[in-house]
Design a protein around this nucleic acid. Structure first.
Length: 268
DNA sequence: CGGATTTGACCCGG
DNA sequence: CCGGGTCAAATCCG
């Protein structure tokens, strides 16, 4: 509440502030959505949910516009999802010790000029891993000395060029932590798992949707007591398969030029 | 053993 | 120069 307008600030600064405020509004709306979902009366609840949804959409929409400022328009839409429960029971902690000498000869050249405008969708949810796609984490970064942002790619990139990506950034530390999930590009693959072996029932309490595929739980796992928080700056991560390196690929598809090894789905 | 994740470095644009 | 995003080697877990 104590914000100095500073009329002499550059527009970028003001825009930033506006974005921040919008973010606040967005998460607030998401919260409200959760609360609203507790309304016992179905009719009322639905109406309220719809309203809040619209609010969220408007917020996210504005956010998108602001963020892309006057560059591209795109039809970014946004949805406020209020799925819930995302507590994966993970018994194993991560006592990892990685301090080995790492050859640092990463000298790749990836010249990619801006060309196509990706479709960007933003949603605020507490269960970023709930969508039914197979994501591969490829990076992680700590932005404001606070919440980390995780980078995911479609899990079936190699094989098909599914450009879908998603960024997950935690927004707060609420009981139900919220995550801002940004989707970039659309899935050109059908790597979805529409399956849901839920027996039946379920209707009252929200269910925890956990599909079998590897998800991406950004929960703050960690052994209770052991917390590694030492260097926090820029770290990122990941990837899984090796493309066609000269060392692996013993699995299959030694022939042809289309190595497609999919569990049960495939891209067009 | 294979696949998913971790982690540090690299790279590019603002 | 800094921030944000990506890569690839190494490590961890099932």
């Amino acid at each position: 509440m104590s914000r100095s307008p500073s009329p002499s600030q550059p527009p970028s600064k003001r825009r930033d502030a506006a974005i921040q405020e919008l973010r606040r509004g967005t998460q607030l709306a998401a919260r409200l959505q959760q609360q609203v979902q507790l309304i016992p009366e179905l009719g009322r609840r639905e109406a309220a949910v719809a309203n809040v949804s619209e609010i969220s959409e408007a917020m996210a929409s504005s956010l998108s516009m602001l963020q892309s400022e006057s560059e591209h328009s795109s039809e970014s839409g946004s949805v406020a999802e209020a799925a819930c429960a995302a507590y994966s029971s993970d018994g194993s902690s991560g006592v990892r010790n990685g301090a080995v000498a790492r050859a640092r000869k990463v000298r790749h050249r990836r010249g990619r000029l801006g060309e196509e405008l990706p479709v960007i969708k933003e949603i605020l949810t507490e269960a970023p891993e709930n969508d039914r796609f197979h994501w591969r984490k490829y990076g992680e970064k700590i932005l404001n000395a606070e919440y980390t942002r995780l980078y995911y790619k479609c899990g079936y990139i190699e094989g098909h060029k599914c450009p879908a990506k998603k960024y997950v950034q935690q927004q707060n530390n609420g009981d139900p932590p919220l995550f801002m999930v940004t989707f970039v590009n659309e899935h050109t693959c059908n790597t979805m798992f529409p399956d849901e072996p839920t027996s039946s029932s379920s209707d009252s309490s929200q269910v925890l949707d956990f599909t079998k595929p590897s998800l991406s739980p950004p929960l703050m796992k960690g052994a209770p007591g052991v917390k590694q928080e030492e260097k926090a700056s820029t770290s990122v991560s990941a990837q899984s398969y090796g493309y066609n390196d000269s060392s692996s690929l013993p699995s299959k598809s030694p022939n042809g030029d289309q190595p497609n090894f999919n569990p049960r789905a495939r891209c067009q």
